[in-house]
C-alpha cells in the first residue's frame, strides 16, 4: 500500500488529484458516475461577490487537442454558494477549494471575508488569472506588483490556506510566483488558460463571442509543465500543477517537475472518470518504482549535468 496523501500548506489531501475549477461544477454534476470523495480535492467554480451572467454564447471552440472557452465567470455569487452548495459539499469527505474572483480588490476581499469560518471550505484559490473578464482577473495576474498587492490585501482576512492561481500569459512566471509568495500566498496553482483565438472561415467570424478566450487541454501541457518547473524552482511554497493533464503519466511529469499536487480540468470532459484512473496510475507507478510515498517523487526531476 503506497501513501498518496499530500499536505499543501496545511491542506491535507488523501491524494494529489484535484478537480480544476470550472470543470467539475460542484461535484454533484458528476455524482452519478463516481464517488466524488475518492478525489483528493474539488476546486469549485470561480465565485464572485454578486451573481454574474458570464459571457454570451458561443463560449466554446474546439481546437487541435485543445478547447477554447470564454465562460466569463458565470456564477450565482458567494451567498448562493454558501447557502446552496456548501452544505452539500460539507458531506463529501474531500477537500473543497473555493476559487475566488473579483473585479476589484474590495470585491475579492468581500468574498474571502464571507468564506471565513465556513467549515465546508478547506482552502481558497485566488483567481488572479481569468482571461475572460474585462476587469480584475488577468489584469491583476500579469504584473508582479499588482498581484502581490492583491494578495497582501486578501491574506489578513483569509483563515484557510491561500492558493494563488497564476496566469501563463506572462513573460516571467518565476517573478510572479515569487511576488505572491512574498506577499503571503501559502501555495500557487498554475497554469490558468492560455489566451487564444479561433476563426470560422466560412462565416469569417471569431468562433468565440468575445473573440479571444482561454485555451486548455492537452495542447497546453508542455507549456504548463515548463511553467510549473520554473515556478517550483523559484519558490519555497507548494506548487499545484495543472494544464492539459490527461493521464497518470502526465501527472507524474508535473510531480517530477516540482508540483506537490495536480489539478485535472479539460480531460474530465473527455472522460469523467479520468481522475480516478490517474489516482490508480500514480499508485501503480510508485509501486513499480519501489517507492512508498507520492511525496518521494515531487521535484525529483533528474537533470543530467
Amino acid at each position: 500500500m503506497v501513501d498518496l496523501s499530500v499536505d499543501i500548506a496545511g491542506l491535507r489531501l488523501k491524494n494529489p488529484v484535484i478537480a480544476a475549477s470550472g470543470t467539475y461544477g460542484y461535484g454533484a454534476e458528476y455524482a452519478d458516475f463516481l464517488e466524488i470523495e475518492k478525489l483528493g480535492g474539488l476546486a469549485v467554480k470561480g465565485t464572485t461577490l454578486k451573481p454574474r451572467q458570464g459571457n454570451p454564447a458561443p463560449r466554446l471552440a474546439e481546437t487541435p487537442s485543445g478547447l477554447l472557452n470564454t465562460v466569463g465567470l458565470q456564477n450565482k455569487g458567494v451567498d448562493y454558494l454558501i447557502r446552496e452548495h456548501l452544505p452539500k459539499l460539507a458531506g463529501l469527505n474531500t477537500a473543497v477549494i473555493v476559487n475566488v474572483c473579483g473585479s476589484t480588490p474590495e470585491e475579492y476581499r468581500a468574498v474571502v471575508k464571507k468564506l471565513r469560518d465556513q467549515p465546508a471550505v478547506s482552502a481558497l484559490e485566488l483567481n488572479i488569472s481569468c482571461p475572460n473578464v474585462s476587469q480584475g482577473g488577468l489584469a491583476c495576474g500579469t504584473d508582479p506588483d499588482t498581484a502581490a498587492e492583491l494578495v497582501k490585501q486578501i491574506k489578513p482576512f483569509c483563515d484557510k490556506p491561500l492558493i494563488v492561481k497564476l496566469s501563463p500569459n506572462v513573460t516571467d512566471i518565476a517573478s510572479i510566483a515569487q511576488a505572491v509568495e512574498a506577499a503571503g500566498a501559502d501555495a500557487v496553482s498554475l497554469i490558468n488558460t492560455l489566451l487564444g483565438m479561433a476563426v470560422d472561415i466560412e462565416t469569417q467570424r471569431p468562433r468565440l463571442s468575445t473573440v479571444t478566450g482561454g485555451l486548455s487541454g492537452a495542447a497546453v501541457k508542455p507549456v504548463a509543465l515548463r511553467m510549473v518547473w520554473q515556478a517550483a524552482r523559484a519558490v519555497k511554497i507548494p506548487v499545484i500543477g495543472l494544464g492539459g493533464i490527461s493521464c497518470w503519466q502526465d501527472a507524474v511529469e508535473f510531480l517530477l517537475a516540482g508540483a506537490s499536487a495536480v489539478q485535472i480540468g479539460t480531460a474530465n470532459f473527455q472522460n469523467p472518470l479520468v481522475m480516478l484512473e490517474i489516482i490508480a496510475g500514480l499508485a501503480e507507478y510508485l509501486q513499480s518504482k519501489g517507492l512508498a510515498k507520492i511525496t518521494d517523487i515531487v521535484g525529483g526531476l533528474k537533470i543530467p549535468d
Binding site: 461544477g25 454534476e29 458570464g54 478547447l67 472557452n69 465562460v71
Partner: peptide, 20 residues
Amino acid sequence: MACGVGACLGCVTDTLKDGR
C-alpha cells in the same frame, strides 16, 4: 458542449426567467 452535465457552463442559451 464540453461536459454535457451542467458543470462547465459552456453551452448556454439566454432565457427570459433564469438568464443564461
